[in-house]
């Protein structure tokens, strides 16, 4: 005979308790994930060096640039994927993008050193820079990049650069 829960049976109470516990755990995980994406406390420095006089052509670009690298080093692939140029979001599968950037969260960004900000056109900017970071093993490292940003509509979008895996962006 099929066993049924009755409203006040111990089995029913146990089931409800487990269900509630599961909900708490799931919502807790989700909350943590969301926090990772929305907590934009910036704990790294952005400094200018090099010979050329560089300045941000647009304060909104500075904001977006700072947010992008803060999110990237927090491991928020979801957030930074949506900061990429819309045409890149159409061309690059989100899963591949996530695999490409996810390891960054193992490092802690300490400083971005900007050598040059070149306004290639009113809507396209290249930023030559060095990322200084500390690995999860405590080792200080740095890598250089030329970060690209394009203004589409009223917003600045990042342009990921990799002629191998994302040739459409290069």
């Amino acid at each position: 005979m099929m066993r049924l829960f009755t409203k006040n049976s111990p089995d029913c109470m146990l089931f409800l308790f487990c269900f509630a516990l599961a909900l708490i755990v799931i919502s807790g995980c989700t909350h943590e994930e969301q926090d990772k994406g929305t907590d934009l406390a910036v704990d790294f420095d952005i400094v200018f060096s090099g010979d050329k006089d560089s300045d941000w052509p647009d304060s909104r670009l500075e904001e977006r640039f700072t947010d992008y690298w803060a999110l990237r080093f927090k491991g928020d692939a979801y957030g930074i994927y949506r900061m990429e140029a819309p045409y890149l979001q159409a061309l690059i599968p989100e899963g591949q993008y996530r695999n490409y950037v996810r390891g960054t969260a193992r490092n802690t960004l300490s400083k971005i050193e900007i050598f040059d900000i070149s306004l290639r056109s009113d809507n396209f900017v290249e930023i030559s820079m060095t990322l200084h970071f500390v690995t999860d093993g405590g080792r200080e490292q740095s890598t250089c990049r030329r970060d690209r940003w394009v203004k589409t509509g009223e917003e600045w979008h990042h342009v990921i650069r990799d002629p191998l895996f994302f040739p459409a962006a290069s």
Partner: peptide, 9 residues
């Protein structure tokens, strides 16, 4: 080899 300005070295 790759020495790309997007990070590969």
């Amino acid at each position: 080899y790759a020495a790309i300005d997007g990070g590969f070295e």
